[in-house]
Design a protein around this nucleic acid. Structure first.
Lengths: 224, 224
DNA sequence: ATATTTTAATAGTATTACTTTTATTTTTGC
DNA sequence: GCAAAAATAAAAGTAATACTATTAAAATAT
């Protein structure tokens, strides 16, 4: 599988960038180092000027790739969801039993990324942490409806739909498959955040994974 | 109940503000109009300068009350959670049946605020919308651990704990009461957001309330 | 009526989030 | 291998943000 991923290029909506960062060495350095910097500084303190300094390049050159840092965040998070979707499809495709398939799917989307598959300049471990801490900020904006129309969230939406379809496969009478799917995906990020910063608000810890909690939650809801 | 609320003053951690906005007419105008402006502009575009202009006052005067707009957001959201907690306690206190009590609690925390109880300068309808759109931003920061230590999120945490305790009352063998509580409270905000901006990702709409979905979710999990 | 506190007005600073222009370097097409 | 085109770097500039500091005026409290 690692092998196959070597050639994977996640397809990102080309309105998100001005110039495709995958198309040049500078572009790749922008992506690689923006992940380090956003992880270190947090999205609010991260600026293109600082990034330019870090990669020994100019602020204005970065603007040739992304209109602003919000678009860069959309790029990074879209890439992440696309990467997760690939794993989801790959790892569940051969499972014929629908319960098992859904269980596996929940495991994949709720686990924290432990090792950098390092097939590229993208560090998935850090990117996963960025998504936990920053993803909400990409859509909790006044521009969300326009950006949604432009398809900026389509990969994420496709992922929610995939899980929804698996839920329906298990129990087609369950009345809230979309809400349950979005709850699990968003809730997983939230439980990971709580685990790090508000331990009294979660039961997840070293021993109890979010996967365990969410599998219990989902299958209790789908019992007939 | 409206009557009783007239005298309610939500107690906010006094480190959140420099000068208590409840203590002066200017302070109250700051709160009242910041709610209008954050709702209109979104938190990112909201500034103290604009607020100063709107209330016919000076930017620097607002800084006498709040260190920065992040602290103002913490104030507003703390007030909101305190107000919700009051309703929760008030409306569930007399219910002796623990299932019924939890059901009522979920209804209260997942409903959207429909009418301004207008006992004060605070518009709860708009504040509820602000919480849906902006609350995550108050804790998804690099300062969260320090601010948590300083008790900035204590009202919210107390609310999560109250629901957790009600969950345990219904089924003390359920292994994830804290996670379930935090999932419902955070998930309710999320479902309301999806309802407005990503209808394909939720089953909630005019007819199906988030309350309905979450009551089903919770009680399916608590069945013995 | 005076002292104290609060608010308003003004000005100033450092930083952000860009844009523009021009020069230099790199790539590519022939 | 060279010219043209494209990409990048450097520098400078702008408007806005997120503040701080100072001083004056107004409100209030004793």
């Amino acid at each position: 599988m690692k092998y196959l991923l070597q050639d994977l290029k996640v397809r990102i909506n080309d309105k998100i960038y001005i110039k495709d960062p995958e198309s040049s060495a500078l572009g790749k350095r922008i992506i690689e180092n923006s992940i380090f910097m956003i992880h270190d500084l947090g999205f609010e303190s991260f600026t293109f000027k600082k990034l330019g300094e870090k990669i020994g390049s100019n602020e204005s050159s970065i603007y040739r790739y992304f209109e602003n840092k919000h678009k860069l965040l959309l790029y990074l998070t879209s890439w992440y969801w696309g990467w997760l979707e690939y794993q989801l499809v790959f790892d569940t495709n051969s499972i014929s039993n629908s319960e098992e398939k859904l269980k596996k799917a929940i495991e994949i989307i709720t686990r924290s990324v432990k090792e950098d598959s390092s097939f590229s300049h993208i560090n998935e471990v850090l990117l996963n942490k960025i998504v936990v801490n920053e993803y909400s900020k990409s859509y909790l904006t006044k521009e969300v409806d326009n950006e949604n129309k432009d398809g900026y969230f389509s990969i994420y939406k496709r992922l929610v739909t995939r899980i929804k379809d698996m839920i329906i496969e298990v129990n087609n009478e369950y009345p809230y498959p979309s809400s349950l799917s979005s709850t699990v995906i968003e809730g997983a990020l939230h439980q990971h955040f709580l685990k790090e910063h508000f331990i009294s608000l979660t039961d997840c810890n070293n021993k109890v994974t979010p996967a365990k909690y969410f599998i219990d939650l989902v299958f209790n809801s789908l019992r007939k």
